[in-house]
């Protein structure tokens, strides 16, 4: 699927979705700092193009598995902004009833098997969802998002092997955002991650993860191949985490692991800026862009108002849902 096939209308739609994620995450940063959230949050700011460019090709019957940095993946595939924010607030009307919180947001009705608190935890789950899609004779696919840090879990090797062997409809999307928690990727990761596909005989490819057009194109091709029975693909999205690993990390870290200048430099090619430039290049009227942004801002504002006022769960709910 080539970048040329992406219409300007579709590009505006992708931009709107990225803008929505950015707005939610910026707001979460604010309310976290204000002490309104019960637990920690890992924000997706700077990586929006990956979730949006990939999920644009997926239906509600396709599955995704995500990470501890999972709000963006959720919002790229589900429209339930309110339920996501309410979950992060720990409220009864959150998408998991307040049981999961930020690291476990999931909307199964939309094909989202969930964020995950275990680094690499989603890789085997998605491989299983792909096995299910294949065995049930559907044309559905499974996509797993995981970090460069997660790429060092042994389960990646095991999944690549079984997915290649059985030609599973699986797309492995590694988001290389430069850091494995507080360690720069190169200090803990040997070689290039996309090349880990090669010995298994499946396609692997590095992608500019800050350009939603490139993500859309590479993911479209991999997903189409998986749907058609062509098996798995490993994509390494090169991107950059603009916020901390976790909000408020400076309060407990004794030393820094990157410079402010580095972050500012990387901000120059952050995905929203890249997409905006592309929209201008495609002669989309500034008014149309502003209107899309306003719409998203309003929806996000409403979601936060809703969540902050939403009732807490009943304590008895703690004892439900252990068994079906």
């Amino acid at each position: 699927m080539s970048v040329q096939e992406l219409t300007s209308g579709k590009l505006l739609e992708l931009y709107g979705r990225m803008f929505r994620i950015r707005t939610v995450e910026e707001r979460l940063a604010q309310v976290q700092a204000a002490g309104e959230l019960p637990g920690p949050v890992h924000l997706y700011i700077g990586q929006e193009a990956v979730a949006v460019g990939v999920c644009a090709h997926l239906s509600d019957q396709d599955w995704i598995c995500s990470t501890h940095r999972g709000h963006g993946h959720f919002l790229a595939k589900s429209d339930e902004i309110r339920k996501l924010v309410a979950e992060v607030y720990g409220r009864a009307s959150g998408v998991c009833g307040g049981k999961g919180g930020s690291m476990h947001v999931a909307d199964v009705s939309k094909g989202i098997l969930g964020a995950n608190g275990i680094v690499g935890g989603g890789i085997a789950l998605a491989t299983g969802a792909a096995l299910s899609a294949q065995t049930r004779g559907t044309r559905n696919v499974a996509v797993v998002f995981f970090g460069d840090g997660a790429a060092n879990q042994g389960v990646l090797l095991e999944s690549l092997n079984v997915a290649a062997l059985w030609k599973l409809p699986l797309v492995l999307v590694c988001e290389n955002n430069g850091f494995s928690e507080f360690s720069p990727t190169a200090t803990v990761t040997a070689g290039e991650i996309w090349k880990r596909a090669t010995p298994f005989g499946i396609p692997g490819e590095p992608v500019d993860g800050n350009d939603v057009r490139e993500v859309w194109s590479a993911a479209g091709e991999a997903i189409e191949r998986a749907r058609g029975g062509g098996g798995a693909t490993l994509l390494e999205m090169r991107t950059y985490r603009l916020r901390g690993h976790v909000e408020a990390e400076k309060s407990f870290l004794a030393k820094s692991y990157r410079s402010d200048e580095e972050v500012e430099r990387r901000r120059e090619r952050e995905p929203l800026r890249v997409a905006l430039a592309a929209l201008r290049g495609a002669r989309i009227a500034p008014d149309a862009i502003a209107a899309a942004e306003d719409k998203e801002r309003a929806a996000v504002q409403a979601a936060f108002e809703y969540a902050a006022a939403a009732p807490w769960p009943q304590p008895e709910a703690a004892f439900q849902h252990m068994f079906a």
């Binding site: 019960p38 720990g90 998991c96 999961g100 769960p313 709910a317 703690a318 252990m322």
Partner: peptide
């Protein structure tokens, strides 16, 4: 702790 996983919401966690 009763035989459940530990929930996120502080209200639920306190119950457990």
């Amino acid at each position: 702790v009763e035989d459940v996983a530990i929930p996120y919401s502080p209200v639920l966690e306190k119950a457990v």
